[in-house]
Amino acid sequence: MEESARWIAQEEASVLRSVASEVATHLMGQRWRSPARDRAQARGEELEFSVLACARDLEIWAQHADSASVGLPGI
């Protein structure tokens, strides 16, 4: 099946956004309390923002790319 690089990039950006959203959901309203939880919270927030940043960069790349200009193996 022929897929454009742009389409793949957009789709993966959407996947990254859903991961970031899931991270945010999981970090809310937890009842367990410990220093380990605080560390997990900090790493989780970091992960959420980094994944979002990657999603944005991927979307920007996709906006500028074109199916005719970027090929897939065998196409």
């Binding site: 690089a5 990039a9 993966e12 790319a65 970027v70």
Partner: peptide, 23 residues
């Protein structure tokens, strides 16, 4: 999945179509 995108091939083509985009 992003690694499946053939950037080596695209580099030459980019000069023709979208000069501002770097695969």
């Amino acid at each position: 999945r992003l690694a499946s995108i053939d950037t080596t091939r695209s580099v030459a083509e980019l000069h023709q179509a979208w000069a501002s985009v770097r695969a």
